[in-house]
Amino acid sequence: MLQQSTQLDRLYHALADGGRRAMLDRLIKGPASVSELAEPLDMTLSAVVQHLKVLEESGLVRTEKVGRVRTCRVEPKALSMAEKWINQRRGLWERRFDRLGDLLATLPDDEQGKETKS
């Protein structure tokens, strides 16, 4: 459980930065070299490499070095953990709202619209 929590923290940390999300958006279109990822961004190549490290640690990106070129690929399976976490909470809140709706439906009509007077 702790390892899953740590991985989820890394995933959300990676997604918290706009530059890293821009890199992911680019990689969704297909693999790219580090320099191709850096081209449209307003940051140094060194900063791009640091951001890629965060993306790799989160599991969202995989890189491979062939010769002098490091190619990056997106790992869409990494998002399944975040999706599962969100869906679990969504289900919980939907059930709570359903119970609240059921409770409100049992109140007399004059109680539902009643405002408190000071």
Rank of each mutant, 00 (worst) to 15 (best):
K65A: 12
D98R: 04
P31G: 01
A105P: 00
G91L: 10
L52I: 15
D17L: 07
L15N: 05
M43W: 10
Y12G: 06
V66A: 05
R99M: 09
R95D: 13
W93N: 09
R20K: 09
F97D: 14
L92S: 05
E39S: 01
V61A: 12
P40K: 06
L11N: 04
A78L: 08
A47P: 08
V61S: 10
K65V: 13
V48D: 05
L92A: 05
D17F: 02
T44L: 08
T6F: 05
R89N: 15
A22Q: 15
R21I: 00
G18V: 13
R73L: 07
F97H: 14
T116R: 07
V34I: 08
L45F: 12
R95V: 11
P108R: 15
N87Y: 01
P76W: 03
E57M: 04
R21S: 00
A32W: 08
P108A: 15
K65E: 15
D102K: 15
R73E: 09
A22P: 06
S5C: 10
F97I: 15
E111Q: 09
N87W: 00
G30Y: 05
V69K: 07
N87E: 13
I28M: 11
H13R: 13
E111C: 01
G91S: 14
Q112M: 08
R21V: 01
E94L: 14
T106N: 03
L45H: 11
L11E: 08
L37F: 04
R62E: 13
Y12V: 15
W93K: 09
S33T: 12
R68M: 11
T116H: 08
R68F: 10
E64W: 03
R90S: 10
D98G: 02
Q4G: 03
P76M: 10
L27G: 04
D17K: 01
E75A: 06
L52S: 12
A32R: 14
K77S: 15
L104S: 02
L79H: 00
A32V: 07
L55K: 02
D9I: 02
E111W: 09
L41V: 05
S118Q: 04
L41M: 09
G113R: 09
